[in-house]
Design a protein around this nucleic acid. Sequence first.
DNA 1: CAGTAAACGAGACGGTACGTCGTGTCTTCTG
DNA 2: CAGAAGACACGACGTACCGTCTCGTTTACTG
Lengths: 199, 199, 199, 199
Amino acid sequence: MSATDPPPKRRASIGARRNPASQAAILAAARAVLAEQGYSGFSIDAVSRRAGAGKPTIYRWWKSRAELLIEVYAAEKGALRAATTGNLAEDLTAYTAALWDFWRDTPSGRTFRALVAEAQHDETALEALRGKFLPERLQDVRALFGAAVARGEIAAAEVEMRLALYVGFNWYYVLTDRLVDGRAAIPAAMRLVAASLRD
Amino acid sequence: MSATDPPPKRRASIGARRNPASQAAILAAARAVLAEQGYSGFSIDAVSRRAGAGKPTIYRWWKSRAELLIEVYAAEKGALRAATTGNLAEDLTAYTAALWDFWRDTPSGRTFRALVAEAQHDETALEALRGKFLPERLQDVRALFGAAVARGEIAAAEVEMRLALYVGFNWYYVLTDRLVDGRAAIPAAMRLVAASLRD
Amino acid sequence: MSATDPPPKRRASIGARRNPASQAAILAAARAVLAEQGYSGFSIDAVSRRAGAGKPTIYRWWKSRAELLIEVYAAEKGALRAATTGNLAEDLTAYTAALWDFWRDTPSGRTFRALVAEAQHDETALEALRGKFLPERLQDVRALFGAAVARGEIAAAEVEMRLALYVGFNWYYVLTDRLVDGRAAIPAAMRLVAASLRD
Amino acid sequence: MSATDPPPKRRASIGARRNPASQAAILAAARAVLAEQGYSGFSIDAVSRRAGAGKPTIYRWWKSRAELLIEVYAAEKGALRAATTGNLAEDLTAYTAALWDFWRDTPSGRTFRALVAEAQHDETALEALRGKFLPERLQDVRALFGAAVARGEIAAAEVEMRLALYVGFNWYYVLTDRLVDGRAAIPAAMRLVAASLRD
DNA sequence: CAGTAAACGAGACGGTACGTCGTGTCTTCTG
DNA sequence: CAGAAGACACGACGTACCGTCTCGTTTACTG
């Protein structure tokens, strides 16, 4: 989203179906608002103004702020991929470093923080976070743990617990806006998350 | 906070100093509002109405919603204490179980969630969370880690990383409102947080 | 849902244009508040509550209390008309008597007083009073003077001065809430306002 | 009142009686506030801050804003005197010109406007205006009319009516803040106020 | 190929909350 | 015991945003 917005041209209806141009404009506007003002400036009114879209158009396709945030996040997250190399701690470290870069270098960090905040407001947003957003986002990481289970590194029964430690570690740093400070701690933390419990 | 509130009597000024009765009523009202309506119903107006206090009285003593939340939380947290028994994993498990009980059985869980959400809105709230709230709240847990360092269980350089894993684990469950589901995972997670990294 | 419930009658938007029902309800509420509580009870909040209208709806159409007062006054003033019979003093007397009746028997006297008071608070209100309200309200009286000039009763150059005396006389009595006491003085005063200056 | 306020020194009690220094400071502060901000900035809080006086001290000696305004006005008005020369119109013209100068060149014009506005808010202020303030202020002008009655220029029964015309003329111009524009109209208006009604 | 259905922008609507200011009352402390 | 200091409950201020509603317009899909 450029700082100098293009003059918002009126996008009329294209008939009795969703206008992709409007949807794209709304997502772009939401991303821009989050990038520039953060969660406190993120309102349906602001997005509507920025996108040159009517509020009902937004509410028609996203029934809550949370849904909009989720789609904004998903639109940018696509590129990030976790690769299995044979060592869980190293895989987690590589993925986490990439994730933190992504959070730092795009508006996605702010989007993520907004989404977690939104889930504290709104029960349905929390449900969406738990039931849809997190499972999707954690798919790759879960696969890393799955591969480690297959290799015998960790027990299958421990995956959820390790996942919670892993996710919580990331949340703690992103929600306190300390992605830079905490970066050095990633490798050791990932070694612990991947460590054996047999001793 | 009983559901049937006593008839709110007007509390006049007691001179050019803070009226403890008003402060207590405001804190109690804030706690009650959070308990009954959660973060979405938590507004200075609502607290003011509930407490029978003027909004300026609230703003006089608490510069922001976050400060009020912090004090509400602190007022209930007092009782919780961490004891060192000689085994870090066990100490952490005991403390965490007590913390989760406290979050579940009092409005404090909601207060905590509200505070984290507030920190996503408001930069000064985030600063207060990082600079004042968390250090104070983590004092006891940090002491547990310190004792483990003294016993040679873990390295001093690893304390911050382990603390982040520990805190994140708790945040993840409380912020997704899954304190009940996640309870069984506590002991194993704490063993991992306390595990050796030498192998 | 009891059958005795008064219909809540929320006035929704009727599209991207002013809803006449809301405007009428706001004007009626403003008139009612002034009639019942006078200027000291006249607040945008009170009008909003009384009208069942949102404050932003009021501010959207009236930039200030003064504008609202002016429109409330104009809505009732319509009926009053000045007739030229051929004698300025008598015409003024008849009109003034009717005006004072109108001020006494409707909320308009209070509205007028409120408007003058408002103009002492607010520079833009004063500007509206001088530039818009008074010229419109004085149109009829000015026509009476104009007719007298045409008949040769008074000099054209004296009209503004006589108008000031005339208006001031009315203001003095209405602003001191003595419309009843002062009534007997109207005819003689009007003879003086209409008197020749030749001697 | 100088623009650079002297550092407000604490004026302690001087025993169980009114402290003249405090009263003077309060009156001076009220005058200064009116001069600088007009009626809209005139509040007991503002006067209290400016004077370095406690609000209860103000309320103790002046039970309303109106009383304070009256005393502020009286403190400056003293100098103005009406002189009888043998011609009512000329006497009125001279006095009115002096009065308008006084209103223009001192904060008194604003004080006067504030007082009239206050009387529209507050019934007791109106009563004070009618019963105390106006009779005192009009004493001199009434004397001019009395002298004219004694000389046979006007009828005794017409004095109140002429006084109303005279006062209203002044009010009209001061309340619309047009003392400069209206100045030229004074002599003719005064001739009319003093004119014979016998023709 | 006309009629209908639905999406679009626009923006008004009744509300709630914001954070600040002023009100008049009250109490304590100082001199 | 007066005076400063200032806290108190209250309520108005003007603004932002909420989610809903209706408008008039613009297509595409239908019968």
